[in-house]
């Protein structure tokens, strides 16, 4: 295993704590990425869109 990875695995994960809520940095990053993706998917224009009169089926 590369030294950088083995060194990272040897150390305990970093945790954020706010009162009763405790979450690791890794999990927090994944949740934030999902939020960002969700917002971007709603606001970014979709390329090549046109109304073809489909019926939803």
């Amino acid at each position: 295993m590369p030294p950088l990875i083995s060194a990272a695995l040897d150390n305990p994960a970093t945790y954020f704590s706010w009162g009763w809520l405790q979450i690791s940095v890794g999990n927090l990053i994944v949740i934030l990425v999902m939020f960002v993706l969700f917002i971007l998917a709603l606001v970014l224009p979709f390329p090549g869109g046109h109304d073809d009169g489909g019926d939803g089926s």
Binding site: L40, H50, D51
Partner: peptide, 19 residues
């Protein structure tokens, strides 16, 4: 034609429908 459609309604043209 329902199983393998070649056209979709216009509202499908949104990134949220890609996931």
């Amino acid at each position: 034609d329902k199983l393998l459609p070649d056209r979709q309604p216009s509202y499908v043209g949104s990134w949220i429908y890609v996931f």
